[in-house]
């Protein structure tokens, strides 16, 4: 039952980490779709399961202790979970690329930057060494670094430039989907802006679809077309950017927006969401958010809310919206 317009469809993905200290249900029943040229933002706090989802799509999860328990990842009509390692290797770096959070450690210190870009080109395209190096230099220019620096080593670059190199590696083979896991979190704010601008430009130029993982709603506003909000391994709200920013439905989303300090208003105290992220090996029963939810009802601790379409294309997992009676309590 796959929608042929969609580049990537993730359906009911479940990923667990199993250790002798307990089982962490890192990702639960994850479902989303991305069309060609679309950017999906996955938003959540640290430990919500965002990186695990991304690694799961690429199937780069450490297999003990991690395990993709069930679900489908349908890319270009085929289920990635049914593919062999050698088939997956043809996709990684080529059709689906990933960039990671910390540029300082993502590059191999003993290989030149040019060699590392050329490596991904040689893996997937039928070129010789010299041609690959030429293309590598072109990629460097594309991300705003002089091509002559291809002979330099990673430690000779600043953090922001290293991240550009990482982007160059990811885009060298013109992938259809780029997964970016908090690409700017480790960078200064000004460099952040540069990198985001670069990514936006390249996205348009190459018509790349993107999954942007972040905890920063500002980046979501600039870059994403639609957004999935994650909490403790579950998607709690999933809709386009406009709906999310104008009418957030899930209490967690509302809480996130409220906790951002407002420059224009005269506030004396911040409004954080009360409580802490739950221990992943010991999640609360029912809806994981209920201990912290200002609108919690008795049913919230007993069952996990199903996906409800609150308005067209706007999905929430919350008992407040699950049937008509509760809508009154939500203040509709």
């Amino acid at each position: 039952m796959s929608n042929n317009n969609m580049l990537l469809e993730v359906k009911d993905l479940n990923i667990h980490y199993i250790s002798h200290e307990g089982t962490v249900k890192a990702v639960n029943d994850m479902t989303f779709e991305i069309a060609k040229g679309e950017t999906l933002g996955i938003v959540g706090e640290t430990g919500a399961g965002k990186t695990t989802t991304a690694l799961g799509i690429m199937q780069l999860i450490q297999t003990p202790p991690g395990k993709i328990v069930s679900g489908e990842i349908i890319y270009d009509g085929e289920d990635l979970l049914k593919k062999s390692q050698s088939e997956l290797r043809k996709i990684r770096g080529n059709k689906i690329s990933m960039i990671f959070q910390d540029p300082m450690t993502s590059l191999n210190p003993v290989l030149t930057v040019g060699e590392q870009i050329a490596e991904v080109i040689k893996l997937h395209q039928n070129v010789n060494n010299a041609q690959a190096m030429v293309k590598a230099e072109e990629m460097l220019e594309t991300v705003g670094i002089p091509g002559a620096r291809s002979k330099d080593f990673p430690h000779q670059f600043s953090g922001g430039m290293k991240q550009r190199v990482v982007i160059a590696i990811a885009l060298a083979c013109n992938p259809e989907l780029l997964i970016a896991d908090e690409p700017t979190t480790a960078l200064d704010v000004t460099i952040q802006a540069q990198v985001i601008t670069l990514m936006n430009r390249l996205k348009k130029e190459f018509n790349t679809s993107m999954i942007m993982i972040t905890h920063d709603l500002g980046i979501v506003a600039e870059v994403c077309d639609k957004v999935a909000i994650m909490y403790a391994g579950n998607v709690v709200e999933y809709t386009n950017k406009y709906n999310l920013f104008t009418t957030p439905k899930h209490p967690y989303t509302v809480g996130l927006f409220n906790s951002i300090p407002n420059i224009e208003e005269d506030e004396t105290r911040l409004k954080p969401i009360k409580g802490l992220m739950p221990d992943p090996t010991n999640l609360p029963s029912g809806c994981s958010f209920h201990p912290r939810c200002p609108k919690a009802m008795p049913i919230c601790s007993k069952e996990f809310p199903k996906r409800t379409e609150v308005s067209e294309g706007h999905f929430v997992h919350c008992f407040l919206y699950e049937n008509v009676d509760n809508k009154e309590q939500a203040g509709e």
């Binding site: 990684r92 770096g93 990671f100 993502s106 893996l123 590696i169």
Partner: peptide, 12 residues
């Protein structure tokens, strides 16, 4: 190290 993960993500 992270750069090993990067190498695998390239499809190496």
């Amino acid at each position: 190290q992270d750069y090993i993960r990067t190498a695998r993500a390239k499809g190496q």
